[in-house]
Design a protein around this nucleic acid. Structure first.
Length: 420
DNA sequence: TCTGGGGTCCTAGGACCC
DNA sequence: TCTGGGGTCCTAGGACCC
């Protein structure tokens, strides 16, 4: 059996932890640039605010009805997430952290049969009492079924946040009431395709011969079908897999025409990407940079320009990554467009310690560079000072909007909550 | 005026090899 | 006139997820 534990309206719930005055108020959290809604408390959902809705469309009405809004505060959410995951790992050592707000537990680790109902409610209570975040729990023989169970636990108040699927008869009944688009791994396109051939519920899909699906669709859907039938075939990643690519990109506060400002943004993103790369203890060989116009604005001329550059030697050196990202910018930049977003993507990784040195590598230079980067990372991390490279300025022209961010209550000494 | 920012996996098709 | 067949590797792009 697998359990999926998922925090309810995670970002919005985080914002409530240190603000008891907001307990029953509607809360929404906005994406970067305060662009669109990415989390809603139950009260905000009831007001009809939908996920990824552009903020400007609902702002006035929402605020006039007493809604509360926050810019996203990832540092804070990540810390709360860590605390939740720690509680879960205490309860079950076989844990697969699937995203910032959800994790699978492999309950087969428990040799003896445990009381699943007790287990689930204990789990829920600990996280609520110790961290302050409400969770929903779905338990089932496969991860796909646990996902579905979790969805119902969350949406249907009759279940009090816990749904356990073990009896085949119950599972069958449950699947019949479940439209296919709610299944994990079935998005818009697949829903349309499947409905076309008269597969409308999870039960319909579970009855299809999985090999037939494998032949006519692909192995991903085949696995989903098997999982619906109760054969577990999506396993837990029991250790953290290294990342395969690192992307840093942002939309600008307002659109930009000038190459020099774009270059600042590209340098800034390149630098952030290099930091992440070193944190992952990887070096990259491929650097990609892109710039693009606002794809929602039909009144401006559209452009999307991207290019990659392959290095001879893998690197994690901020200076090299910035230099090459800007070299790409030189090649892809075209005058006369309004740019709305830029980004840098690093890929083709090799482990920092175990890659093949070339015959002509200068070992000493490498060592120097690596020490320099370590020092820079340390100074930035400890907030001794803010060190950047080259032209990565931080002009208001492209900096993102984040007007209503809450405090970093748990990670910054100057921002911890105080009482009177 | 104002529409996020990450990721993963898979597949088709081209390049290349013997 | 007749022009193999099988394999691997890589990349771009699609679909999906949170």
């Amino acid at each position: 059996m697998f359990a999926l534990i998922d925090c309810n309206s995670f970002y919005a719930s985080c914002e409530k932890i240190f603000r008891p005055d907001l307990k029953h108020r509607p809360i929404v959290v906005l994406s970067n640039n305060d662009g669109c809604v990415i989390a809603r408390s139950p009260e905000a959902k009831k007001m009809g605010i939908s996920m990824t809705q552009p903020w400007y469309q609902v702002k006035d009405q929402y605020l006039s009805k007493g809604g509360v809004v926050f810019s996203s505060n990832y540092e804070f959410y990540a810390d709360i997430s860590n605390r939740v995951m720690n509680v879960l790992s205490d309860l079950c050592p076989e844990i697969d952290i699937y995203s910032i707000d959800e994790a699978f537990l492999d309950l087969r680790t428990f040799r003896k049969n445990i009381d699943l109902v007790n287990f689930a409610y204990d789990c829920k209570k600990r996280i609520k009492d110790w961290i302050g975040v409400p969770v929903s729990i779905g338990i089932a023989p496969t991860k796909t079924l646990a996902k579905l169970a979790n969805k119902v636990a969350k949406d249907d108040p009759r279940f009090d946040g816990v749904v356990i699927l073990s009896e085949p008869r119950v599972i069958r009944h449950f699947l019949k009431s479940m439209p296919i688009e709610k299944i994990w791994g079935i998005g818009r396109k697949l829903t349309a395709k499947l409905e076309n051939i008269d597969i409308k519920t999870a039960y319909d899909l579970s009855q299809v011969d999985s090999r037939l699906i494998g032949d006519n669709f692909n192995v991903v859907l085949e696995r989903t079908v098997r999982e619906l039938k109760g054969q577990s075939c999506i396993t837990l990643h029991d250790f953290m897999e290294p990342k395969k690519q690192i992307m840093v990109s942002r939309s600008f506060g307002k659109s930009i025409r000038s190459k020099s400002v774009l270059s600042e943004a590209i340098s800034f993103h390149a630098s952030r990407a290099a930091e992440k790369l070193r944190y992952e203890k990887q070096k990259c060989r491929l650097i990609t940079a892109f710039i693009r116009s606002n794809r929602f604005n039909t009144r401006v001329r559209q452009i999307y320009a991207a290019k990659s550059f392959e290095l001879v030697h893998p690197t994690d050196d901020t200076r090299i990554i910035i230099k090459n990202a800007n070299r790409i910018l030189d090649q892809i930049f075209a005058d006369g467009y309004q740019y709305a977003k830029a980004g840098v993507l690093l890929s083709d990784f090799t482990n920092r310690y175990g890659y093949q040195m070339s015959l002509f590598d200068k070992k000493r230079d490498e060592k120097m560079a690596s020490r320099l980067m370590q020092t820079v990372d340390y100074i930035n991390l400890m907030e001794i000072a803010k060190i950047g490279f080259g032209n990565q300025g931080y002009r208001n022209t492209w900096r993102m909007k984040r007007e209503i961010k809450s405090k970093r209550y748990t990670t910054q000494i100057g921002e911890i909550p105080t009482t009177k």
